[in-house]
Simulated assay, not measured.
Amino acid sequence: MRELFLTDHEAYIRWIDLPGDGPVRVFVHGLGCTAASDFAHIAAHPALGGGRALLVDLLGHGLSDRPADFDYRMESQAGAVAAVLDHLGLTGVDLVGHSMGGAVTIHLAAARPDLVARLVVAEPNLYAGGGAFSSPVAAQDEDTFVASGFARMLALARRADYAARLRLADPRAVHRSATALVEGSVPAPGDLLATLPLPRTFLLGELSRPDPDAEKAAGFGVPVIEVPGAGHNLMLDNAEGFATALARALSATPSPTPGHDGD
Rank of each mutant, 00 (worst) to 15 (best):
M1I: 07
A11Q: 09
Y12W: 15
G22D: 04
V28H: 01
G32D: 04
C33D: 13
D38G: 13
I42Y: 00
A44T: 14
A47Q: 08
A47K: 02
L48P: 12
G62K: 05
D69T: 13
D69P: 02
V81R: 05
A83S: 14
D94L: 05
L95D: 00
L95T: 00
A103E: 07
I106Q: 01
A109G: 06
A111Q: 11
A111C: 09
V116I: 06
A117T: 05
L119K: 10
A132E: 14
V137A: 04
A138K: 02
D141F: 11
R152F: 08
L154C: 11
D161Y: 09
L166C: 08
L168K: 12
P171M: 07
R172G: 13
L181I: 15
A188K: 00
P189K: 00
G190P: 00
D191V: 11
L193K: 04
L193N: 03
L196K: 00
L198W: 05
T201M: 00
L204W: 02
G205R: 03
G205T: 01
E206H: 02
S208Q: 10
D213R: 11
G221K: 00
V224Q: 03
V227Q: 04
H232F: 10
M235L: 08
N238C: 09
E240Y: 13
T244E: 06
L246D: 04
A247H: 13
A252T: 09
A252S: 13
P254R: 01
P254E: 03
P256E: 10
T257R: 15
